[in-house]
Amino acid sequence: MDRKELIALREQVENRDQKEERIVQKLDPFMNGNVGIYYPINGEVNCFDDFKRYKNLYLPITQENGKMDFYQFTGKLYKGKFNCLEPSNKKKIDPLDLDVIIVPMIGFYKMHRLGYGKGYYDRYLKQTQAIKIGVAFDCQKLDHMDIKKTDVPMDLIITESKTIWK
């Protein structure tokens, strides 16, 4: 399956609310310290709504030069350069100060994630020692994936039915 097919599959997940609730319950014990999270797009697992009141939450802002940084979420979002919602606060966190980072996935194979293909997350994940938690629905599990040297494995992957540890 290519990325477009996987995104379409993810967008059509049945019983989404119940599955996301199970994922959020499994994530909850890891929500300690400074946490990087994302605002969901294209059918990504929505963990944000359940954790948006968490005080040490950081959201990514991507730049045209391929760089991504995380900025503190203080309750307000605005539509950024790539039509994604971004935090209005411009207090950037150093990658080494993040304790946990929740990572969206289009698909996954073993401990590796398939993203949108631009490498934003992989470049950022190389800079941090945070616990890397990929979140996905069971239907996003792949039977095979080409793994590149630049791909950063997750420390754990959480789906509605499994927690997979490195």
Rank of each mutant, 00 (worst) to 15 (best):
T163A: 05
D49E: 15
V103S: 11
I157Y: 00
V152M: 03
V100K: 09
Y54A: 07
T62R: 02
R123K: 15
M68E: 00
K76F: 03
G75F: 04
I164A: 03
P87G: 08
D138N: 13
Y39E: 08
I101T: 05
K55Y: 11
H112N: 14
L85T: 02
K90F: 10
C47E: 05
L77R: 01
P40K: 04
V135L: 14
M31N: 01
Y124A: 09
D155E: 03
Y120W: 11
K81E: 12
V45M: 15
I131K: 13
I158N: 00
L57G: 05
F48H: 06
D143C: 13
D138W: 07
P60D: 02
G75T: 06
Q18M: 11
R10Y: 10
D49Y: 12
K149A: 12
G33E: 06
E11V: 00
N46Y: 04
Q72H: 15
R53E: 15
F51G: 02
R53K: 15
S88K: 13
K76I: 03
N89M: 09
N56P: 00
N46C: 09
T62I: 06
K141T: 04
P104Y: 08
Y116L: 15
T159Y: 00
I101K: 02
Y58K: 01
I133T: 14
C139L: 15
K67E: 15
V135Q: 13
G33T: 06
V45K: 15
I93E: 12
K141V: 05
L57C: 08
P95M: 13
C47K: 01
Y39Q: 10
K166C: 05
Q25H: 04
T150A: 07
P29G: 01
E86M: 03
L57N: 06
I158P: 01
F82M: 07
P95K: 12
E14R: 14
L98Y: 09
